[in-house]
Design a protein around this nucleic acid. Structure first.
Length: 272
DNA sequence: AACAGCACCTGTAGGC
DNA sequence: TGCCTACAGGTGCTGT
């Protein structure tokens, strides 16, 4: 479900409600969510307070007073809620008991994961630079020698962290670059333009509290609003807002990929 | 070594 | 109505 803007929106909502709160206990209803170390989780988390909440890529990280860090990935359908409605009860996977409230991790498809990192450990060592770190993104795009389609590269969290299927398509449209362009063949100008486009698209999405296509909600239970601003994602067959050409949809890396065949021609387009 | 393909899960929408 | 298939915002493993 969530990409960087949705996770960022969620983290902004969670931060004031979690910071300095003490964890009293954890209940795990679906052990794979925590890699089957339930008792370990109870021992490490119980009695410690949350010192800081931050986001890295699509991960939510809770830094604890004990020095441990809990990372949470929502994957496709994960949600963190302060209230559990009866119809969501069957999908409750983990609950974290805090001093005055409970945080419910609800996840229909059971893909979401939590992981504990010991004090001093480098957390999430395999993640690339955050997608909002424009200089690092530009550098990664310029340096790559990969022959993969640029869209596949954008989705690779080892290269850049935080971009998913929606914002990959939207960023490539904003930069007027074809999704199937071999990554290494981007010009220096195109790499710079794409890095700027990624930043602009993600910031605009954050400003609108993310994209709610189906069931994504902010920490307050609200929908995002960026779905009304999507230029290509989910618009197959509809006219491009820029030129009127029907938006195309193809399969790329087992996922749908939306683009304007006219605005996003192959390479060698003017850079501006 | 890098990459494509599938596995992991469940719900929903659309075709017949 | 019911059955079947395709698809969904993500990652990680496996085999080539």
């Amino acid at each position: 479900m969530p990409e960087l803007p949705e996770v960022e929106t969620l983290v902004r909502g969670l931060t004031p409600r979690l910071t300095e709160r003490r964890i009293n206990g954890i209940t795990v209803l679906w052990p794979p969510t925590v890699y089957k170390q339930t008792s370990v989780y109870r021992d490490i988390l119980s009695g410690t307070a949350i010192r800081r909440v931050f986001r890295r890529g699509k991960y939510i990280c809770l830094v604890l007073d004990s020095g441990w860090t809990l990372s949470i990935h929502l994957r496709m359908t994960g949600k963190l809620l302060f209230q559990l409605s009866p119809e969501l009860m069957p999908f409750l996977r983990v609950s974290l008991q805090l001093a005055e409230q409970t945080v419910y991790f609800v996840d229909v498809r059971k893909f979401g994961r939590m992981k504990l990192w010991p004090p001093g450990a480098q957390i999430l060592p395999d993640l690339g630079p955050d997608a909002l770190d424009t200089p690092a993104v530009r550098k990664a795009l310029k340096q790559t020698s990969s022959s993969r389609a640029i869209k596949c590269l954008l989705l690779d969290q080892h290269v850049i962290a935080g971009i998913g299927n929606i914002y990959a398509d939207e960023s490539l449209f904003a930069a007027r670059i074809s999704p199937i362009t071999p990554a290494f063949s981007l010009s220096s100008h195109q790499a710079a333009r794409l890095a700027r486009a990624i930043h602009a698209v993600l910031q605009a999405a954050i400003a609108h509290s993310g994209t709610s296509l189906k069931d994504y909600r902010t920490a307050d239970g609200d929908s995002g609003r960026f779905q009304h601003r999507l230029q290509v994602y989910g618009r197959a067959g509809k006219p491009c807002y820029a030129c009127g050409t029907p938006i195309e949809r193809v399969r790329l890396q087992q996922r749908s990929c939306h683009f304007c065949p006219s605005c996003q021609r192959g390479r060698n387009r003017n850079s501006r």
